[in-house]
Every structure is written in structure tokens, then in C-alpha cells.
């Protein structure tokens, strides 16, 4: 019947779009950047300073919000949002603005050891999309040692 719960999850290709469009942190950060760049009366090509500190503060603030209605509605894709938000911090060279150990502890609590893959948050079903996000976040923190790389790769190849 059902070999793995993950087989009932969203099809991979479409959830990649969900990953891109659904992440609140990423969408909000992108919207924020776009809003900044869209300032009227600025001529094309004229260089402007990126308000990096504001973006960092915004992402860190969003990360701490866990109890609002909007956050709860996005609870199931939080791991993916973590990837987008943390990648932005990394690009801005501000990854130290968050506590790495806390993140890694939380990521490992989203792990499904029997299936060797990840759900989008604690208690949520595993899916290859969040398995990818977990790997990406561990790379950002240079902590791939926290997982059994061969087993995870084997699991992904079976999707």
C-alpha cells in the first residue's frame, strides 16, 4: 500500500515552485529589496547602496516570529524559509547574526531517522524538498558532519 509517507507528499517539481514562492522570509526579503530598488526618480545604472543592515534585521526578526497567524500558516515550510533567509544572510556576510547551534538542533528535530529525510518543520511529514533545504542549511553552517551523507544521498536517489 503505502511504502513511505513521503510518497504521498507534493510532487517534487511543483513544490520547487512552492519553495520559491511560498517562503515568507524570502518573499518578504525579495519584496523589500525590490521596493528599495524601485525608488522613483532614480536613473538607470546609477549605483545605490544596498541597505544590508536593514535586510539582516528584518530576516532575523522574521525568524523569531513563530506565533503569529501568518507564521503558523507557513509553519509547514519553515525549513525551506530557513534556507532562503539564511542564504540571504550568508550573501550579506551576516550569518553570525543567528545562533548556529540552535538552528542545527532544530533542523535535526525535523529529521525522520526511519526514512533518512526531513519534514518542513517538527512533526511534519518528510519530503525531498525539505531534505534538500536541510542539506543546504547544514552546508551554510559548514556542518554536514551532522548527517550521514551517504544515507541521505541514497534516500534522495530513491525518490
Amino acid at each position: 500500500m503505502v511504502g513511505r509517507t513521503c510518497h504521498l507528499s507534493l510532487p517534487t517539481r511543483d513544490t520547487a515552485l512552492l519553495a520559491v514562492t511560498g517562503s515568507l522570509a524570502a518573499a518578504a526579503a525579495t519584496a523589500s529589496i525590490a521596493k528599495h530598488l524601485a525608488q522613483p526618480a532614480q536613473p538607470w545604472g546609477m549605483e545605490r547602496e544596498l541597505a544590508a543592515e536593514k535586510h539582516v534585521r528584518y530576516i532575523v526578526t522574521m525568524e523569531k516570529k513563530k506565533d503569529s497567524f501568518e507564521s503558523l500558516v507557513m509553519e509547514h515550510i519553515r525549513l525551506n524559509g530557513a534556507y532562503w533567509g539564511l542564504t540571504t544572510l550568508d550573501l550579506l556576510h551576516k550569518l553570525h547574526a543567528v545562533e548556529a547551534d540552535e538552528f542545527i538542533e532544530w533542523i535535526m528535530s525535523c529529521y525522520h531517522p526511519d526514512q533518512v529525510d526531513w519534514g518542513g518543520n517538527v512533526g511534519h511529514d518528510a519530503h525531498v524538498l525539505y531534505t534538500l533545504s536541510a542539506g543546504q542549511v547544514l552546508c551554510l553552517f559548514d556542518r554536514l558532519d551532522a548527517l550521514d551523507v551517504d544515507k541521505v544521498a541514497d534516500c534522495i536517489l530513491h525518490y
Binding site: L18, H76, G123, H124
Partner: peptide
């Protein structure tokens, strides 16, 4: 309330 909760669909 939240049609995107994929675990609920599973």
C-alpha cells in the same frame, strides 16, 4: 484555513 498544509493532505 490553510490548504497548503501538505501533511494534512497526506
Amino acid at each position: 484555513i490553510n490548504p497548503e498544509a501538505y501533511t494534512a493532505w497526506n
